[in-house]
């Protein structure tokens, strides 16, 4: 209710979001550090290999710093992180930072393309259906939309991926089904990870659009007899994007998880396939590094969504908690 605040509202907004990011990053560092501490059994034994002598294990324990106190280890861990040192793989002795640098572009490529595809397809689709079906018109289209999106939306990416590999890759032979050697190899993985979220988000958009179309302010806009494009794009889109992105933000961040799984379907050389390999081999430094990077990536996506939300809806800037 207040009149304009003295401090620019985005300052508080930025401070809150930055606080959130720091919180997540701290939590990530603690959790990844804990991976080694919490694992049952002796990490040094795992690191030294199955055939290691007790001497070798002791030396390994010393090399890894595991013989020191936990706080000292944590300080070391954080210090190394700050220097960009993520440790070495137990198995290949590779530098984990190098592994990440090697694999990250593939995963990021997949996830970002997926997000773009999702937003570009789902938002217009949902709006279109909502506008076409408003006031109970075109019930059949509405029903078909609900059914198809419900069906595909609840099909996990690894099932979709398997299906795509079979139909498009094997039966039709149109696109490569594995690896990342060529550009067209991107198509199937991107479709596999984005198809489900496209459907789910299109449904959300459809519902949110219907809500906006029934709002008083939308009636006001109708009362100005604006051309359809202006009416829907200027008066409906920002409002439905706010609520849609709030809901869909989770899906978009969750897309990273889907990417990790889908990579296995398509033998995609990203972080996902590498971390699965590392987990089965109990290659802890690699797991730590990849989890840290994936987590930060998720955090980044969330931050981006928050910023977009802040730009779209001035009320989120001043903090929703203030409202009654």
């Amino acid at each position: 209710m207040a009149v304009l605040d003295e401090a620019p509202p985005w300052l508080g907004f930025a401070a809150r979001r930055l606080g959130g990011v720091l919180l997540v990053l701290t939590a990530l560092v603690v959790i990844t550090f804990a991976i080694v501490q919490l694992m049952p059994g002796d990490p040094a034994r795992v690191a030294a290999g199955a055939n290691a002598t007790p001497d070798q294990i002791t030396r390994m324990r010393h090399d890894l710093g595991l013989d020191r106190s936990v706080p000292a280890q944590f300080v070391d861990y954080v210090g190394n992180l700050l220097h960009g040192d993520l440790g070495r793989s137990f198995h290949t002795q590779e530098n984990v930072a190098d592994i990440v640098a090697d694999r990250l572009p593939y995963t990021a490529e997949l996830a970002l393309l997926g997000i773009v595809v999702i937003l570009v397809v789902a938002i217009p689709l949902g709006m279109l259906v909502a506008v076409l079906c408003q006031n109970g018109r075109r019930r059949r289209l509405d029903g078909a939309f609900t059914f198809v999106t419900g069906f595909v939306g609840s099909t996990p990416e690894y099932v979709l991926g398997t299906l795509l590999v079979y139909v498009v890759g094997i039966k039709l032979g149109w696109l490569p089904v594995a690896g990342a050697a060529t550009v067209d190899a991107l198509v199937l993985p991107v479709v596999a990870i984005s198809l489900g979220p496209v459907c789910t988000i299109a449904r959300i958009v459809r519902r949110e659009t219907a809500v906006v179309l029934g709002q008083d302010y939308f009636r006001t806009a109708r009362g100005r007899r604006l051309p359809a494009r202006r009416l829907y794009l200027r008066h409906a889109l920002p409002n439905l994007l706010t609520s849609t992105l709030t809901l869909a933000g989770l899906l978009l961040a969750g897309l990273l998880g889907g990417t990790v799984i889908a990579e296995s379907v398509f033998a995609w050389p990203g972080l996902g396939t590498r971390v699965v390999e590392a987990i089965t081999q109990r290659d802890l430094p690699v797991v730590q590094g990849v989890v840290l990077v994936l987590g930060s990536l998720a955090c980044l996506i969330n931050l981006l969504i928050d910023v977009v939300l802040g730009l779209l809806d001035p009320r989120t800037l001043s903090g929703k908690a203030a409202g009654s």
């Binding site: 991976i35 897309l255 998880g257 799984i261 971390v275 802890l284 994936l294 987590g295 998720a298």
Partner: peptide, 21 residues
Amino acid sequence: DVMISYPAVILALTIAAILDP
């Protein structure tokens, strides 16, 4: 809120790495 926005699969991978798969 922050926890929700963290992908479940990645959390699951972390926990699977700590415990035995």
